[in-house]
Write a protein that binds this DNA or RNA. Structure first.
Lengths: 201, 201
DNA sequence: TCTATGAGACGAGACGTTCCGTCTTGACAC
DNA sequence: GTGTCAAGACGGAACGTCTCGTCTCATAGA
């Protein structure tokens, strides 16, 4: 019974201000103290403008983070492929470690993850818009390695990806251990041992 | 300047009622709708009694979950050790899958994890009281396997544990894929391939 | 041994505050 | 004119603090 708003008339300026304010406030005060009213005040925007375009706080955070990813360098789509799988993976994993340590990233990513844990719809949206494409790029790199005989040809790439990334992700999310470049390297090495092709077949 | 309350005079009955109410309310309405006032009302307890003994909602959830673990069968301390590492691990991993699927566990564990993501103090408490002891039991089993020559003697057991459990945990927490007994088995198999001793040394 | 007294935890709930999500207003743009 | 905008008033929910009067229990005086 309610009219959906007309996106053509949406103020891009306000949209940007809201996403920027959300990102800044998370970084400054943490997710627990983030409020819609705070975002509106910081952005110089009416609360209704936020409620008109986003269904939940989680959705705002998601878009804020999505904008951050999209505005960044277009490196997310393709991973390095020098032919040396071990070296390439170590570069990527070390980069991931560095990214997790960046305070500007850490706050929003933590907030988004916390929201996702209790919101299946947001989890699906995340997989579709953010996680999915990145995972596809990673799997493409692994497929190349399979063709080059560096990885077992019958390996389950979803499982492979989880094997490689989940330990890193868990250590960061639950703060269960130090996140160092050496750890990233060790993870790559044990991953390769698990997934390398069988000598005899 | 404030006096800490005297634990000797604490009402065990109220404590139990609060933890039980917290658990029931999470299971019934989800974590998002859980309130301190709701817990107090359900438990037949004054709000101050909660605030007197717990610093945060997360701490209440933590204790509620801790009590659940402690009251359960005393199976958490030792893992099966039949000598067959692969079979033993599959039993444990399949049990973990089943536990994650149990609605009575799922709600509180998700709530606790969400809280932990944004609360380093709670994360530390979790590791000390819940995660740590369980991990030690798991590592003890892996050490036995090392002695039996079933696992690389120089393997980093912290890394090994993460390799085995983090993919399972991530799939459940982020709902990024189906959690089946077959998946648990596949995980064990690839884990063993990664961690088995080198033939030549 | 008996009692009474004081400290402190208890259930109950009032209180001011913050934030929620909705609604109203007037300005401005298309 | 119609619809979005900034600003903010509004009622409701939950917060965390507080003040009641009741209770339990350990200590001490009789």
């Amino acid at each position: 019974m309610v009219k959906p708003p007309n996106p053509a008339r949406r103020s891009e300026h306000s949209r940007q201000a809201i996403l920027t304010a959300a990102r800044e406030l998370i970084a400054e005060m943490g997710y627990a103290k983030l409020t819609i009213e705070g975002i509106a005040a910081r952005a110089g925007v009416g609360k209704q403008t936020i409620y008109r375009w986003w269904p939940s706080k989680g959705a705002v955070i998601f878009d804020a983070f999505l904008a951050l990813s999209e505005s960044g360098p277009e490196q997310g789509v393709a991973l390095p492929d020098t032919g040396d799988l071990e070296a390439d993976l170590k570069v990527v994993m070390r980069a991931t470690v560095a990214e997790f340590a960046d305070p500007a990233f850490e706050g929003p990513i933590r907030a988004l993850n916390a929201e996702i844990v209790n919101d299946p719809a947001l989890a699906a949206q995340y997989r579709e818009k953010l996680g999915g494409p990145v995972d596809e790029a990673k799997k493409a790199r692994l497929r190349n390695a399979q063709r080059a005989g560096q990885l077992a040809a019958d390996a389950d790439l979803d499982l492979a990806l989880e094997l490689l990334y989940a330990p890193l992700y868990q250590r960061w999310l639950l703060r269960s251990g130090p996140l160092t470049p050496e750890y990233a390297d060790a993870l790559v090495e044990v991953f390769l041992k698990a997934m390398r092709p069988d000598v005899v077949r």
